[in-house]
Design a protein around this nucleic acid. Sequence first.
DNA 1: GCAAATTAATGATTTATTCAAG
DNA 2: CTTGAATAAATCATTAATTTGC
Lengths: 212, 212
Amino acid sequence: MSPTGSSRWCPTPEQLMILEEIYRGGTRTPNASQIQQITAHLAFYGKIEGKNVFYWFQNHKARDRQKLRRKLMSKQMHQQHVLYNHHHHNNYHHLNYLEAPPACVLPPLSHYSRPVGFLPQVGDEEASSKQMVSYYPWNVDHRLHQESFEMDNSMARSCGRDWMMMQDVGPTPTCCNRPLKTLELFPSSQPLPSKMSTPHLSTSLPQLPTTN
Amino acid sequence: MSPTGSSRWCPTPEQLMILEEIYRGGTRTPNASQIQQITAHLAFYGKIEGKNVFYWFQNHKARDRQKLRRKLMSKQMHQQHVLYNHHHHNNYHHLNYLEAPPACVLPPLSHYSRPVGFLPQVGDEEASSKQMVSYYPWNVDHRLHQESFEMDNSMARSCGRDWMMMQDVGPTPTCCNRPLKTLELFPSSQPLPSKMSTPHLSTSLPQLPTTN
DNA sequence: GCAAATTAATGATTTATTCAAG
DNA sequence: CTTGAATAAATCATTAATTTGC
């Protein structure tokens, strides 16, 4: 509608592919610096902002869950149908118990307090057929974080949406749409912790709480 | 717990008073620049960030709605009790029809698509007994925006959370906790449109869409 | 009075739902 | 129909009130 550009972000195939790769890698709710990094790297393939990345993960996660829920729902409908004679469940939250364990076993925590980038999770058609090698530094290889379940409540919920206060990664350097070089990108040598490539903003970040 | 400060924002009485004043003035979902301005002014009374303002309005609005809903609920329970013989309303969203009109008549839009800072709205105990004079530039005196209902769908949902990409208003100049000078503050002569007092940030704003 | 224990408020996050562009 | 964008609801988590036993 506006002459200068579309009103909403339209991901290029490369961007989409990378995002899905990261998602399959286990990243569900990237934190501020993760979003910053992902955005910076995706900007190489086209115009993109941090909020696009944020929304993409949010939507993708939600719609995955929704798909799964629908699937389980119909499965219940078909198979058992009258095992629970419905206890007049007015509160829709009981649905959450259908979707809380994302297709793999979970310690019976509240569905909120699981560590964000923790599980391989998904287990549908994808992810079980993939390598899960950590192409991206955000894929904090999950198999190593099993050290102890003590972190379940302490570090859980940390690194949440501190991103909201972070700035976008700059006016997306004039885009370019390269031909997708088969994922040898990302030197994976960046410092990662908090300080990003926008030094003039780092002073006003909300101290990036590690155990908020 | 941490020696340098509390983990969450604790509003000073002055900040709270001003926020409530603005809220009573009709501002429910301030946009990015509104949040910036409010934050800047509140920073005079103590440490504060943009997200605090954002969350405050979100929570305050939600809990207002919740209070009202509860009230209507109990009223229904007491008075009518069996007017609608419940059609097995499993979907909890029907509750929204109880709360959508915020204590005053509304065109039957979806509860989402009403213009954000539009109605005097509230009408409970407060706001109906106040002057509603526009102490603050954010209180775009509602009585003048009645020009036509054409904006209902076009401009609705605009100026939403573009704030998310905006930066905080700087490292809150060492706070000060002044003794609350009875609201003669705010010269109400600021330009308002977009450009804030943090010029080094204005370049990376997401173009502040007016009709996103 | 005054801390530990409990409860109420409320700041901060996450999830669910809706809207609407393409 | 798919999905980016946005908002509301539900929830978590921390701080302030309040109570309780001494």
